[in-house]
Nucleic acid binder design. Structure first.
Lengths: 249, 249
DNA sequence: CGCGAGGTTGATTTGTGTCAATGCACGTGG
DNA sequence: CCACGTGCATTGACACAAATCAACCTCGCG
């Protein structure tokens, strides 16, 4: 049961043991990719669907002047481009940040999965949570100061790594350079550095190599006004205005 | 054929005359709403699905300190909350900006629509375009300066109003206050005012009352680096790097 | 006719970007 | 085993875009 794909989908629908067997089968064969390698580029028609089983990948868009905006992060268990089939072509690129192992699902396999109503529901749940995450990122960039924005991203990643069993207590591996963080947050490398340092100095986060830990999760969540509702995890729905703040406790 | 809902969905799938008849039927009964009225609030479970037939509505999130971020705009023909059913509860609110007429689709009606494969495909197309739009907004906020960001939004709205037949040539009714524009762009009212004025002074846009017109669409698109690919309109796919820039010509 | 919402403007502050340099860890080749 | 190069983190001085604060204006409407 250490399959992050299955762990994630369990949150989207009630699966049977048979469902899990199917999912295990389709995600068992993986292809290794190096860090910073494109999986599919903007403008291409999607064919196989990509599923991250190990490592960290992202969606991004490049501007003519060379600027890059990362618009989504893919952790193990995340599907990259499931429904773009409907749209016909990619309006953005997908690439790895670290070395990854990806499963590739053929259109036939995808059809087989979506024919199963429980799995289909779980996959759509994933797509809609992706969209909700995008909305939250927009709020983050539009309304929060740089330090809070980074704190919010850290809260989100902690939750998502926990979801697939890849967090250890209050810590996880933040496998991104500050430049990549900057492209995610819409800030500059220099400013990300300063703000991360400020978060460390204030004791809200602790960094040892790539491992980032959050000594007081509630404090960090309150600092950046993090509310996990948008991740739509069945058991962590917070009572609005209640005490179980942030669903992180 | 002046039904914006049908006009929009035509872009997502090839519909038959029967399909159109069904869509016409479900969107014929509308409820009037005043300006600045909530349709559904964050935290509520969605029931009826809302469809804008007239007016302008939006998705938004409020922060504890009272700040608001508008994360989507709904023009006539847009569906507000179709698939949130899967998620169980709203992670954001939906409200009107101007007076609106909304059709309300019961769960049974929605089931009937999604049982039709062509309509189902068109509806999912709409959902995925919403997501692509969200990504583009993120790029907008993260990487573009305030004036370009506003220009980009204007380009997008022009395209989308044209799509449903509500633009007249190169102009449309921009029924938003500068405060609402500010909440959309993640800027302050004052700064929106100054940047809009700069756009007017440079001749890129012309404003008469609520009507905004774009004398040279290509110039505006180039100014803000607008590329309509993310709207996934079947016939306007631009050749990458080609001359039919922006799909606006 | 007066009020209020929304648009406009100026002075000033501040958060973030820019430019440039330094440090540090790591890997590689001589 | 050391010299060097490279990628990333860190820091400082300075510039600039956008926020803030505070008026004032204008127009439609009760």
């Amino acid at each position: 049961m250490d399959n992050p794909f299955i762990r994630k989908l369990e949150h989207g629908a009630k699966l049977t043991e048979e469902d899990r067997e199917v999912l295990r089968a389709v995600s068992s064969v993986t292809r290794p990719l190096h860090a910073r390698q494109d999986v599919i580029g903007e403008g291409e028609p999607p064919f196989d669907v990509h599923l991250v089983m190990e490592g960290l990948a992202c969606r991004y868009k490049l501007l003519p002047d060379g600027k890059r905006q990362i618009v989504a992060l893919f952790l193990p268990g995340d599907i990259c481009d499931l429904h773009v089939q409907i749209l016909g072509w990619m309006d953005h690129s997908i690439g790895t940040l670290t070395a990854c192992r990806l499963a590739e699902l053929s259109p036939a396999t995808v059809d087989r999965l979506t024919a199963n109503p429980r799995i289909n529901r779980a996959l759509w749940w994933g797509t809609l949570v992706d969209e909700a995450t995008l909305r939250e990122w927009l709020v983050n960039m539009g309304q929060r100061s740089a330090d809070r924005q980074l704190a919010h991203l850290i809260c989100e990643l902690l939750m998502r790594y926990r979801l697939v069993g890849l967090a250890e207590g209050n810590s996880f591996m933040l496998a991104m350079t500050q430049e990549e963080l900057a492209d995610t947050a819409g800030l500059t490398t220099v400013h990300v550095n300063r703000m991360m340092r400020a978060l460390r100095k204030s004791g809200l986060i602790v960094i040892e190599g790539q491992r980032i830990s959050v000594p007081d999760v509630l404090a960090l969540a309150q600092f950046c006004d993090f509310d996990a509702n948008y991740l739509h995890l069945a058991n962590t729905r917070t009572n609005w205005g209640g005490a179980a703040e942030a669903g992180l406790a």
